[in-house]
Simulated scan of single mutants.
Amino acid sequence: MVTIIKTEFMKLKRYFIVWIGVSLMLLTVLLTLFTTMADDGMVWDYQFLFEQVVKHFVTMIFPMCITLISGYMISREYTDDTLKNIETLPISFRKLLAGKLIVSAILSLFLGIVCFVFTVIANFIMGYDGFALIPALTGLVQMALLGFFLYLTMLPIIVLTSRYKGSFLVGVIVAFVYGFIGMFANGTLQSIYPVSAALGLINYRAGAEGVMWNKGLCFISILIMCAIGIALMFVKQKPEKREAKKTQHTAPKKGW
């Protein structure tokens, strides 16, 4: 498994998809800064900026982003026509998929950190007050863990769409809708819906006092999604139907 993971990281050096992920993290921060143009009387500081970035990170960008990256990594085995060569080795597709998913989990932590770095840079560029070392370190841990928890909630979509050639883009659309719906979850539903439950595990407050999360429900919600994703890995994939080649029989010539 270690060899598979190392190989996947070597493959990533040839792919541009990681840079797309970094660009999407930058887009998350830029989208948040765009909302500062609204004249709604809000006083922006570092903490408020961070909380707004987290909101866009969860509901609009990251679910789509990590599904895109993970799906692309898996689909390259189909598009590069390397899967049939791998099948000749003593490595099952399930083990190969597990290695790719572990790499995706590491990337989810990395992209969370990247988004946090962009947030801090944006804070200094905009000149907002309230930045301090301890809250910043707390935010760094929260953003990294948030990326990982969101990845676990997307695991069933990633695994399911990886079973079919060229279907990962469908998974990206589903992940976007899945994350966007989390914007409307409130009350107890926030702790049950997997995407918003990830916020509960990092103790997200959204600038409001007295926000209560049911950490038990949040943990169970994400654990169920992770278990479903792992279970799908062990479901035997149906072999693709191949059209039988029709043999053409030439009619015997008449006469001499």
Rank of each mutant, 00 (worst) to 15 (best):
I125S: 08
I20G: 06
I69F: 04
G182N: 09
I173R: 03
F118T: 06
L217F: 14
I86K: 04
Y178N: 05
L97A: 09
M154Y: 01
V174K: 02
L133F: 12
G112P: 06
T36E: 08
L101Y: 02
I102W: 04
T67R: 02
M212I: 15
V172G: 05
L97M: 13
V172I: 15
I125D: 09
D39Q: 11
K100C: 05
C65D: 14
A197Y: 09
V117D: 02
V53L: 04
T36I: 06
S108N: 08
L232Y: 04
Y128A: 02
T119C: 10
L27H: 01
G112D: 05
K95C: 00
R94A: 13
I4P: 00
A244D: 13
T161I: 10
M10V: 11
G216M: 13
G112V: 06
I4R: 04
G216A: 13
I181S: 06
A244N: 11
G187N: 09
I121R: 01
G99L: 06
L109H: 02
L83R: 05
D40Q: 12
T59M: 11
V53M: 04
L97Q: 04
I181M: 14
L109Q: 00
D45G: 07
I222G: 06
V174S: 03
L68G: 05
M225I: 00
M10P: 00
V172F: 07
V2R: 10
I173V: 15
L109F: 15
P63I: 04
K6P: 00
V120T: 13
A231D: 03
A197Q: 07
V195Q: 01
L107G: 01
I228T: 08
C115R: 01
F93Y: 13
L201F: 03
G166S: 07
M225W: 12
G187H: 10
V117R: 02
G182Y: 08
